[in-house]
Design a protein around this nucleic acid. Sequence first.
DNA 1: TACTATCCGGAACATCGTTCCGCTTTGTCA
DNA 2: TGACAAAGCGGAACGATGTTCCGGATAGTA
Lengths: 197, 197
Amino acid sequence: MSSESPTGKVSARSKRADALRNQQALLAAAAEVFVASGVDAPIRQIAARAGVGTGTIYRHFPTRADLITAVYRHQIEECAEAGPELLAGTDSPFAALRQWIDLFVDFLVTKHGLADAMQSDSSGFAALHGYFLDRLLPVCAQLLDASVAAGEIRADTRPYELMRGIGNLCIGGGDPQYDPRRLIELLLDGLQHPRPA
Amino acid sequence: MSSESPTGKVSARSKRADALRNQQALLAAAAEVFVASGVDAPIRQIAARAGVGTGTIYRHFPTRADLITAVYRHQIEECAEAGPELLAGTDSPFAALRQWIDLFVDFLVTKHGLADAMQSDSSGFAALHGYFLDRLLPVCAQLLDASVAAGEIRADTRPYELMRGIGNLCIGGGDPQYDPRRLIELLLDGLQHPRPA
DNA sequence: TACTATCCGGAACATCGTTCCGCTTTGTCA
DNA sequence: TGACAAAGCGGAACGATGTTCCGGATAGTA
């Protein structure tokens, strides 16, 4: 991601003050607009809300994914860090996996269209998919492995598929007739099912 | 849908010959383009392939969903009719449900982006979602009810949620790392799980 | 053959993502 | 402090796409 130190914190070095201001304004504006109109809101709308031109937004965040990840970086990080903590806090790795997936689902469904965007293969969103995967896939894999090792679930599930499937199930979570969590429960129950046919 | 009799067959009555020709040409062109470029191919591309103007396509198929459902009507119909047949051909309703879902999944994943389009809430696609639901939801409900009645699965699953979830899981089926069928198996195994926590 | 209802084609408009470049601002150095 | 160059900014401009609209062509009929 642009303008970022290895620690993950936004760096102020070698940047002009106005550029910094604009970057912050854009993050704030994007957060507001995402809540109001979803993560696929028009670029112009975000730029207008921040009081900058469209060119400026592209300078700071070359792709929409960059902007989205910057806005939600903290929450993604929290989710990633929660994995090992949950695992350490219980003697049932599978219970930890369930709780972690709950956190992940909460994150996805509370952002309008985030799940949609994450699975979309259109140009600007591909990187978003990648970022989520880079950060969260290892966590999921760890929880999954631990659950298998504890003999709580079957062993033939690939972390990538599980994460992707959960992301997919979260699409359209706004529909009152459709609660992704119920199906995800079903999926997890399936993991406990003795063996594949 | 425009220009359609109660039997579901395309009606030739009270239509000019050139209009009929164009409608057929559009259906054929759309089918080809859908295979080549997915169901969200540009309207202009379909119109060009059919050798007509863009206005013509909107006259015959006011929304993209109308065009998609017209192109795939036969296959949707076949899928809907297969439900009761499968149910009649076995003494395990749940086995019939599995087979039927297999058919449904086959249908979704062999059409580029059909699953994506079906779940999208953008204007043109909303009707597509509706059409699928109208036709297939009762079939799914019947299979589900029969399975519950036979004591093969738990009773707390809503047909709409199941269909929608399966549709969601089929999104992005082109990825070689992601096989929706494995997760759908998991989901179905979950249905067999004794009782919800 | 003449006439009209129907239909057609594609220009035109709106929206959106993205690029580009002349102008402005900032930080620095003498 | 007062240039000056580098960095950054704004928004016009371009291309793609969906959608509407209407003058002109055409099929069916009298």
